[in-house]
């Protein structure tokens, strides 16, 4: 039986001081791996797959960047929610 698939979009802001550098990018990746849903991060038309560390880094997101989280799949809602939380926690940084 085909599971129901959702498409969820959420806006997030990069609030930590150093932006999405290596550590936040690793956290994004590790979080994305916990979900079935495909999770994309979009910045001004450029898109990175949250599971791809280097693409996420190359998106170039310093502090103050606005991103759209786009999750697609059975657990898209949970995935998008978790991603929003991670950004809101500033990746545990300042």
């Amino acid at each position: 039986m085909q599971e129901k698939s959702y498409l969820v979009e959420r806006e997030v802001w990069v609030e930590n001081r150093l932006g999405i550098h290596a550590r936040p990018a690793s956290q994004i990746l590790n979080l994305a791996r916990q979900f079935e849903a495909e999770i994309l991060l979009e910045k001004d038309g450029s898109v990175a797959n949250a599971r791809e560390l280097l693409s996420v880094l190359a998106l170039d997101c310093p502090q103050g960047t606005r991103l759209v989280v786009r999750a697609k799949g059975a657990d898209a809602r949970d995935a998008a929610h978790a991603m929003v939380q991670l950004f809101a926690r500033k990746f545990g940084e300042t």
């Binding site: 932006g19 999405i20 550098h21 880094l57 190359a58 170039d60 997101c61 310093p62």
Partner: peptide
């Protein structure tokens, strides 16, 4: 092409 020197 990344502008942010820290991320670059």
């Amino acid at each position: 092409r990344i502008e942010d020197p820290y991320i670059r």
